[in-house]
Simulated scan of single mutants.
Amino acid sequence: MKSVNLQRTESLLMELIPEALSDLADARINSLAITGVNCKNGKYDAQVYFDGSDFDKKEINQIVSLLNKANGRLKSHILASTGWYKCPDFKFVNDTSLEKSRNIEALFAQINKNKSED
């Protein structure tokens, strides 16, 4: 169970990271959808999940690389916006849960179709 403070931090990061990304010049990442933030070790590490469903494997690797390069600018923006003393270290991860839920929905649709044919 996460503390209220940690949940508040994650929520604030969910708002500030897309805002910071939108200030960047690279079109591949400035409109990237952030789907979740999971803080670990207090506020020292955070996994940032993004929706990579529109990209192939090679593009996702490029996006992760670009996000890692922009890490310093993201931290600067967040520190300026929050007044925190320290910003978490970000690790960017492609969120595959959206793709999995689409696959499950397609499976249920197929089951429904098969039942209606019987």
Rank of each mutant, 00 (worst) to 15 (best):
F92V: 08
K58N: 07
D56T: 05
L66R: 06
P88A: 06
N61R: 08
F92H: 05
T96A: 10
D118H: 09
M14D: 03
I60M: 12
K58T: 11
E59W: 03
L98A: 13
I104T: 15
A33W: 04
K58I: 12
N114D: 11
G72S: 13
F55G: 09
S116K: 11
L32Q: 05
I104D: 10
K113Q: 10
A25V: 11
R28P: 01
L13D: 00
R8H: 07
R8L: 14
A20W: 00
V4E: 12
W84G: 00
L21Y: 01
S65A: 10
R28M: 01
L12F: 03
S97T: 00
L79Y: 00
N30E: 06
I17E: 00
K2G: 03
E105M: 14
Y85H: 15
K43S: 15
D95C: 12
K69H: 08
D45G: 03
T35L: 06
L21R: 01
I34D: 00
D95N: 14
D23M: 14
Q7H: 06
G52L: 03
R28Y: 00
E117S: 12
Q62G: 04
A25Q: 11
D23F: 06
T9E: 13
N112T: 12
S101N: 08
N5Y: 14
L66K: 08
L16Q: 02
G52V: 02
K91A: 13
N38T: 09
K113S: 11
K43F: 15
S31T: 14
S53C: 08
G42D: 15
G72W: 05
F50Q: 08
S65Q: 10
